[in-house]
Amino acid sequence: MSNLLIISNNSKLLNDKNQMLIQTMSYNAISLSIGLTEELLREYAIHLGKKSDISRGDLTLGKLLSIAPSNDYFYNISKQHKLALGYFLVKAEGENITKNIRNQVAHLCIETENLFTLENVGKILYLLTDVLNTITIACI
């Protein structure tokens, strides 16, 4: 992550010659941040959530961010908050206007050349910070 910050702060390094390096480091930062976000939400649902009989294997990111009443695992995450997180991270059933970044990164099944950018690293880190803040407030 520190190498990514060095490159982003040095305009001389932001050129076509270093594009593969930037994409590689962006992939690492994005995939690790999404994985951590998913795991934080899963742990929050298991240990601080509304339901006590949750199986870890059943908690996918899609279920955690679902707005269906049967999938309401959290006390302080609103429907709008889950919709916003879901817009960036997963593809909701029947929705075609989501970013679906988590699946694009995990499966590399869609053209990802434009996905691994410094701008998208910032967006994903913002979502991670948002989830960390939400869980911290829930623990207070």
Rank of each mutant, 00 (worst) to 15 (best):
Y126D: 02
I124M: 01
T112Y: 14
L108V: 09
G86M: 00
F116E: 02
L128E: 04
G94M: 04
A92D: 08
A92W: 07
E111Y: 14
N120R: 10
A92C: 09
E95W: 07
T129N: 15
T117S: 06
Y87Q: 06
G122R: 08
Q80S: 11
I110L: 12
Q104R: 13
N96L: 12
E95N: 13
E93I: 11
G94V: 01
N120A: 08
E119T: 10
L108A: 14
A84I: 03
A84Q: 03
G86P: 00
Y87H: 12
N103K: 09
T98E: 14
L83H: 08
V90L: 08
L128V: 03
K123Y: 06
L128Q: 06
N120K: 09
H81E: 15
N103S: 12
V121A: 03
A106V: 05
L128F: 01
T98P: 12
I101D: 00
Y87G: 02
A92N: 09
Q80R: 09
K91Y: 09
G122F: 06
Y87M: 10
L108I: 08
L115H: 04
L127M: 03
Q104C: 09
L115N: 04
E113P: 07
I101L: 11
L85K: 00
V90T: 11
A106Y: 06
H81W: 13
K82D: 03
Q104N: 11
F116G: 00
F88D: 03
L83P: 00
T112V: 12
Y126K: 06
E95L: 07
N96S: 12
T117E: 07
N120Y: 13
L127V: 04
I110W: 13
A84E: 01
G94L: 03
L115S: 05
N103Q: 10
N100E: 06
L127F: 02
T117K: 08
L118E: 11
E113L: 14
G122W: 08
T129E: 13
N114I: 09
I110R: 13
N103Y: 08
I124D: 03
K82R: 10
Q104T: 07
H81M: 12
H81T: 14
N120Q: 10
K123H: 07
Y87S: 07
I101N: 00
Q104F: 04
F116K: 02
F116V: 04
C109K: 14
A84K: 02
T129C: 11
I97G: 13
R102E: 03
L85P: 01
L128Y: 01
L125G: 05
E95H: 12
Q80A: 10
V121Y: 00
H81G: 14
A106L: 07
H107A: 07
T112D: 15
K91M: 11
I124F: 05
A84N: 06
Q104V: 06
L83R: 10
F116P: 06
K82A: 05
L115R: 02
G86S: 02
K91R: 15
L89M: 05
K91L: 11
K91P: 02
A106K: 02
V90D: 04
V121C: 04
A92P: 06
L125E: 02
E93P: 05
N96K: 11
L127I: 01
E119P: 03
L89W: 01
